[in-house]
């Protein structure tokens, strides 16, 4: 379902070229919960950005549901982000201006749906994640865990092909972090494909498969219950 073929990403640091990812090939099946681990600067977030269409590879190919993410226009890439991908960030990245329900409905509003149609959908998801009572609150009135749950609800509202989580518990206390991981796990159990970047091995263990990156290259690929490669 998600395919990376010989993907490299190169940045320039002054006159020097730095590889964030080097010749990575990876295949992620529908319904998988993939955890990506690695030290700081190993290329975890770069990989996630490429899968999410936030960035484009310097070399190689990326596909979601057989649709290429490389070599397409910014506008096409943006539409893939809008409809196929759901992002969850470490710092939540909710818009402080909007209420929880508006933040959740934002991807659909962006897609042109009227708020009257978006509202019941957003309410249903908020209800599902147990935040129905906080629908009209602004981010600043919510706790960290609640903000991250709102961010998860926002990622889910478009019914995306894949949920991408970049250190979703990195900014939360351990108890709240665990709640979030349980929520992700339950989503996975309902069939949601999830790719999660984390440097916490306990968090990674919630996945069905863990890959480890080292200096931009794939160093380990383990399925829970036995190594894949």
């Amino acid at each position: 379902m998600i395919e990376l073929k010989n993907v490299s990403k190169q940045y320039r640091q002054g006159a020097r070229a730095v590889y964030a990812l080097k010749d990575v090939s990876l295949s992620i099946q529908k319904g998988e919960f993939l955890s990506i681990m690695g030290a700081s600067g190993s290329g975890k977030s770069t990989l996630l950005n490429l899968v999410g269409g936030l960035d484009q590879p310097s070399a190689g190919e990326v596909f979601i549901n057989a649709k290429p993410l490389h070599g397409i226009s910014d506008s096409e890439l943006t539409l893939i982000r809008r409809r196929q991908v759901g992002f969850i960030f470490q710092f939540f990245n909710l818009l402080p201006l909007l209420t929880a329900i508006e933040n959740v409905g934002l991807p659909l509003l962006v897609d042109g749906l009227p708020f009257t149609r978006v509202k019941p959908m957003a309410e249903a998801i908020l209800h599902k994640i147990g935040l129905a009572a906080r629908a009209e609150h602004r981010p600043e009135q919510l706790s960290g865990g609640e903000m991250q749950r709102v961010a998860i609800a926002r990622a889910l509202i478009t019914n995306p092909a894949v949920l991408l989580a970049d250190e979703p518990t990195g900014n939360l206390d351990s108890h709240t972090g665990e709640e979030i991981l349980l929520l992700l796990k339950s989503l996975h159990e309902q069939g949601q494909t999830i790719i999660m970047v984390t440097h916490d091995s306990k968090a990674a263990a919630y996945g069905t498969r863990i890959i480890t990156l080292k200096d931009g290259a794939l160093s380990q690929d383990v399925a829970i219950g036995g190594p894949l490669a």
């Binding site: 943006t78 982000r81 990245n93 818009l95 991807p107």
Partner: peptide, 16 residues
């Protein structure tokens, strides 16, 4: 800037 980044990440096009 951050708001623009979030909107872009959520699929808002440059023209928009």
């Amino acid at each position: 800037r951050k708001e623009i980044g979030i909107l872009r990440a959520l699929g808002v096009r440059r023209g928009e």
